[in-house]
């Protein structure tokens, strides 16, 4: 064996091929099947997509690097389920390009954040976490309240996600900018359009409260309020046990 190696290490290309061969086995065996085996991701009927406003909020979550402190994955451990809620299912992040499962909990898990607090709480907390939780070391995100949300590119973003397999309809893509506005202006015709396209359960609210102008804060709060609520499957599974 060492004699063979003695010869191999005299050949640049042979050595190169050796490294490629030996290093690719592990990844191929572990990753390739995940794309083909059906059981990897559960099939659920009630799975919905992010609205344009929620997706914009998700993009802000990504831009701000919240994953550096927050996970979005509840493990199958008793204490986690009791602290945060039913454990996460694969299907719940099926439309997350990329996933934000995270690896560090400087702050609590956010996988089931939706509906836990009011919009007002979320806004006040983001503007200055220490106003709400004095011991917190989370950064203040007051600047989001000052930044107007760019909606002109939302159509393109939904269209790109559709290319990747998220089931947005033509109508959703075409109305993305208007729907972002509509979701934050209840009792208007725009809001009605959002409800029609995304379902009655859609969370229509003034979010960050500044009526008239749509800010990045609105989008982020809308996203936080949908976390864990794209499908009810995890709760049903927990109840069934």
């Amino acid at each position: 064996m060492f004699g063979l190696h003695y010869r191999l290490e005299r050949k640049t290309i042979g050595f190169l091929l050796g490294i490629i061969g030996v290093s690719s086995i592990g990844g191929l065996i572990e990753i390739a099947p995940l794309f083909t085996i059906d059981e990897t991701v559960e099939q659920v009927a009630d799975m919905r997509v992010y609205t344009p406003l929620e997706q914009a909020g998700r993009d802000i979550y990504i831009r701000e690097g919240c994953y550096g402190c927050h996970s979005q994955l509840i493990r199958t451990l008793r204490d986690e389920v009791e602290r945060y809620g039913p454990f996460s299912l694969a299907v719940e992040s099926k439309y997350d390009h990329p996933m934000q499962w995270g690896s560090k909990r400087t702050g609590p898990d956010l996988a089931r954040m939706g509906g836990k607090y009011s919009d007002d709480w979320q806004r006040a907390h983001l503007i200055n976490p220490r106003d709400v939780v004095p011991e917190s070391n989370m950064p203040a995100y007051a600047f989001l309240q000052r930044a107007l949300l760019r909606t002109d590119n939302l159509g393109l973003r939904l269209a790109t996600l559709r290319q990747l397999g998220v089931p947005y309809t033509d109508e959703m893509v075409a109305n993305a900018a208007a729907d972002a506005q509509g979701q934050a202006t209840p009792d208007t015709a725009l809001a009605e359009g959002v409800r029609r396209r995304y379902g009655d359960a859609t969370n229509i609210s003034t979010f960050a409260g500044a009526a008239g102008k749509l800010t990045e804060m609105d989008a982020l709060v809308a996203y936080l309020q949908i976390l864990g609520r794209l499908t009810n499957a995890a709760h049903e599974m927990a109840a069934g046990e």
Binding site: E30, L34, T40, A90, E92, P98, L164, G165
Partner: peptide, 11 residues
């Protein structure tokens, strides 16, 4: 947007 999502993306 990344090509993969969810569990495949995580792996």
């Amino acid at each position: 947007y990344s090509l993969f999502s969810g569990v495949q993306d995580a792996m």
